[in-house]
Design a protein around this nucleic acid. Structure first.
Length: 262
DNA sequence: TTATATGTTCGATA
DNA sequence: TTATCGAACATATA
């Protein structure tokens, strides 16, 4: 379940379990998920330990004692799981790190859209990929500058990781619902006030989601996620129906009576 | 059986 | 050249 808040929770979990233990072995279930040629990944990790981590959007970076950095991306599914001999290896474990304290860290990834890589420098990597600033850290000025001049529908731009990193499908729908804007609104038709509103709602949603450990059940009642995929559910504000359409190739849910197309 | 899923990438097109 | 769009990727679940 990995968008910015979920990956932030994974980071906290990783930091609380997997830092400072020597890696004694690694199991790779499917080499296609490791973006390195044979052995390179393994050799770079074994007898190192993780020293610290950072996150940009949905990308998670774990620094090794050697100075190299492991990049994790969860794709559409997945999480970390830390365990010892008393438990079985989780289903869909793709990479398994064995630590010298007897515990293991599983990189679990059911749909195999996730991957791991090995890099030298986070900032160089970020620039090379064209990854934008983290959505929770981007300033309003930067956000405005990046979005204002665009010519496309608003939803696909919110999902564009090159403009800003971390927003995924449910958060994009959540932002537009709370902003009362139709997901197919054209950016050119939005006022400066509406751009500001989108930014403020985005910050609010991210702040709540991270604070509640990405546990949707704890989100306030007015959050769209509670009704997003429920055909019988009604809009919290209007009591009207929730509709599903496709925007930019992604399933998109919205409340047509509440969200206005600009 | 078919459609769908919380994502990114790559090639085609404008 | 740059921006945008759509298909492809792998696999479990309803």
């Amino acid at each position: 379940m990995p968008e910015l808040p979920e990956v932030e929770v994974y980071k906290q979990y990783f930091d609380g379990t997997s830092l400072g233990h020597k890696i004694v072995d690694i199991d790779i279930d499917d080499p296609k998920l490791v973006k390195q040629v044979d052995g390179v990944f393994r050799n770079a990790l074994v007898s190192n330990s993780f020293t610290k981590s950072e996150r940009i959007g949905k990308f998670f970076f774990a620094h090794l004692s050697s100075g190299k950095i492991v990049v994790f991306h969860f794709g559409l599914t997945g999480n970390f799981y830390y365990f010892n001999e008393s438990e079985d290896i989780p289903r869909f474990t793709r990479v398994l790190f064995h630590f010298d304290n007897g515990f293991k860290l599983a990189f679990v990834n059911m749909r195999k859209f996730g991957w791991v890589d090995l890099i030298e420098d986070v900032e160089i990597y970020r620039q090379k990929r064209g990854l934008g600033p983290d959505a929770q850290k981007i300033s309003y000025e930067d956000f405005y500058e990046k979005f204002r001049k665009r010519k496309s529908l608003i939803k696909p731009k919110l999902l564009d990781q090159k403009l800003m990193a971390g927003i995924g499908n449910w958060i994009a729908d959540e932002i537009l619902y709370q902003s009362q804007l139709h997901p197919e609104s054209n950016i050119e038709n939005l006022s400066d006030e509406e751009i500001r509103l989108i930014y403020d709602k985005m910050q609010h949603i991210l702040e709540v989601a991270v604070r509640e450990d990405a546990n949707y059940e704890l989100f306030p009642d007015y959050f769209f996620i509670h009704i997003r995929k429920n055909a019988e559910a009604r809009c919290f504000h209007t009591g009207g129906p929730i509709e599903k359409i496709e925007v930019g190739g992604r399933g998109t849910y919205f409340s047509p009576q509440y969200q206005i197309k600009k």
